[in-house]
């Protein structure tokens, strides 16, 4: 065996070692989260309210808040992102205006989420006087979510072959009808995957929320679904600590005796939720595609 071959063997062995080391780290991460966390998860843990000073608190309200904020943020951002993606896909010409638009979306997507959170704090909490509330949090998450969701939807739209568009236009339909009624349905699998993946990101976001949705989770009356009552779960003006914020909060200043158990349980729930989002993004996207292309 000559020198270069030996060198090659050696280098590749090194690469394998590096990759192996990374695998160990990744495996440790996931293993740690689940091994320390899963034993702490019980129905009681998932449904009961948190306790500030005693052991045995749960994450029920935080979990509900996380989902509620996610749904609201998605409901607000979806039409905006869809509209923006449609403009980029259909109407944007190759000129300075388009490149300015694309640059500003990139800027927004790379902004640190804490900056987005502070902007939300300034605008919604202070300026609009919404206070630390669901609505402030949802609007801030919308800003956080818009650039990535727009990009995901635009990617899915541009994956649809051009002849679909041509077909619509050839029938005397407008570009707008063509995109809304032909291209969007055809790209639905991709769009749905994109939405679910974005949901995972929104679900785990904390920095954008600590100064907008707040860091406290007042008790809720789960029998009262009138959004105008302040202790109704649906009330948009109540402060709402989410699961991700909860993990940060109790680790920063929590004093309950079972701090570690609550944190690791919450972390496991969070990662589990993300895992479910990831898997379902693939699964649902594929199912929708199959449904569309074969027998109904």
């Amino acid at each position: 065996m000559n020198r270069t071959q030996k060198q090659s063997r050696f280098a590749i062995a090194c690469l394998k070692a590096v990759a192996g080391f990374v695998v160990v780290i990744l495996a440790f991460l996931i293993g740690y989260i689940f091994i320390t966390g899963l034993p702490n998860i019980s129905w009681h843990f998932l449904t009961s309210p948190a306790k500030a000073f005693n052991a045995g608190g749960g994450i029920g309200i935080q979990l509900f808040n996380s989902f509620y904020l996610l749904v609201l943020a998605m409901l607000i951002s979806l039409p905006i992102a869809l509209g923006a993606a449609i403009y980029l896909n259909v109407y944007a010409k190759d000129n300075w205006f388009t490149s300015m638009i694309k640059t500003s979306i990139e800027i927004l997507s790379s902004l640190p989420s804490v900056v987005v959170g502070l902007f939300g704090f300034l605008l919604f909490v202070v300026q609009f006087n919404y206070g630390f509330s669901i609505i402030s949090g949802a609007l801030t998450l919308t800003i956080f979510n818009l650039p990535l969701l727009t990009r995901n939807i635009e990617d899915s739209l541009s994956n649809v072959p051009d002849d679909q568009r041509q077909g619509g236009l050839g029938l005397g339909l407008s570009k707008y009808e063509t995109i809304i009624h032909i291209v969007v349905p055809a790209s639905l699998p991709g769009i749905i995957s994109g939405i679910i993946l974005c949901s995972g990101r929104v679900f785990g976001e904390a920095a954008a929320l600590i100064y907008t949705a707040g860091q406290s989770a007042p008790a809720l009356n789960f029998a009262d679904w009138n959004p105008f009552n302040i202790d109704s779960p649906l009330s948009p003006l109540r402060p709402a600590e989410t699961l991700a914020v909860h993990i940060w909060k109790i680790n920063s200043e929590g004093i309950m005796p079972d701090l570690t158990q609550v944190s690791s349980g919450s972390a496991a729930v969070l990662v589990l939720a993300i895992l479910i989002f990831n898997l379902s993004a693939r699964f649902i996207g594929r199912k929708v595609f199959e449904r569309m292309t074969s027998v109904k």
Partner: peptide, 24 residues
């Protein structure tokens, strides 16, 4: 008319995002 409407609607969504970025 529908096309005009759609064009304006999608443009306004985009302008909103730009306004947010500028606002921040």
């Amino acid at each position: 008319r529908y096309e005009r409407f759609g064009h304006l609607l999608s443009l306004s969504a985009l302008l909103l995002i730009m306004a947010i970025v500028l606002g921040i």
